[in-house]
């Protein structure tokens, strides 16, 4: 539908979204649920990277850590402190879960920044599953831990009585919007960054402005390095905030 638009005017060809196409890695054919695709490959690579960092890096169990081991310990300590500070001491049993999400998002974001790679976290299917996992965990844990008191989350007892039903509706909506914003924030940020880089790369076809284009890609790449880290951090810390709501529903 929007096809002709790309070839109008200057003759520049932009297809910034082609990089997100999921295609089978071996041969051709329809994508079944078990097909090994480029998404599978880059997810597997993130697993490999995590294993390299956490398992191979710390295999020495050294008191004085090697560089890789100390990076692993740094991430461990950082996440542990975040869970402890934000979600509270009794959230520590969710630490492996939070660390899993954080590591997957962080490594997918950074691996997605490699040239010619595939950013798995730019897909709404992936981020929606992650966000729904957090949402379901939080809801189930909230009801299991607190029973019906968990509904107190929506009944703001500090507000005037007349306002409470309205606030309850707003709180309820904001509660159910959480997984949406949680997933779209991550997926949208990564997709936006990659698409912008592709758009600038499209301008590089014109010789005169190609230096500007290369400079802009470099700048955006630097920004995306920051965004990749910050989005992983934000995803994790929001998970911790939601967990805190589930464990201590009082306002």
């Amino acid at each position: 539908m929007a096809t002709e638009a790309h070839e109008e005017g200057t003759g520049l060809v932009f297809h910034p979204l082609d990089q997100f196409i999921v295609k089978p890695l071996f041969g051709e054919g329809p994508i079944h649920w078990y097909t090994i695709t480029n998404a599978t490959l880059w997810m597997a690579l993130s697993v490999v990277a995590i294993i390299a960092l956490f398992v191979l890096g710390s295999r020495g169990r050294a008191i004085v850590p090697t560089r890789t081991q100390s990076i692993g310990e740094l991430i461990y300590g950082f996440t542990y402190k975040m869970v402890e500070d934000v979600a509270g001491k009794d959230a520590i049993k969710f630490f492996p879960y939070v660390l899993t999400l954080f590591m997957f998002v962080l490594f997918s974001n950074y691996l997605g920044l490699l040239p010619m790679s595939f950013a798995t976290t730019s897909h709404i299917a992936v981020t929606a599953v992650l966000a729904m996992a957090v949402f379901l965990t939080v809801t189930i844990v909230g009801f299991v831990k607190n029973g019906t008191k968990f509904l107190g989350l929506f009944w703001v007892s500090s507000a005037p009585l007349a306002l409470r039903p309205i606030l309850a509706v707003i709180e309820l909506i904001s509660y159910f919007v959480r997984p949406v914003s949680h997933s779209i924030r991550l997926g949208g940020n990564i997709m936006a960054g990659h698409a912008v880089m592709k758009v600038f790369a499209g301008f590089a076809a014109v010789a005169v402005i190609s230096p500007v284009s290369v400079g802009a890609i470099s700048a955006i790449y630097g920004l995306e390095m920051l965004v990749a880290g910050v989005q992983a951090y934000v995803f994790t810390i929001l998970t911790c905030v939601y967990l805190k709501d589930a464990l201590h529903p009082g306002h």
Partner: peptide
């Protein structure tokens, strides 16, 4: 700092929504 990042994330998420709307209009409608 954590609060700062949460605040930035919430502010940015809405911008991403509008970007998404733009993309949907361009490519998906």
């Amino acid at each position: 700092t954590a609060t700062l990042f949460i605040g930035i994330a919430f502010a940015e998420a809405l911008g991403i929504f509008s970007f998404l709307v733009a993309l949907l209009l361009m490519f998906a409608v």
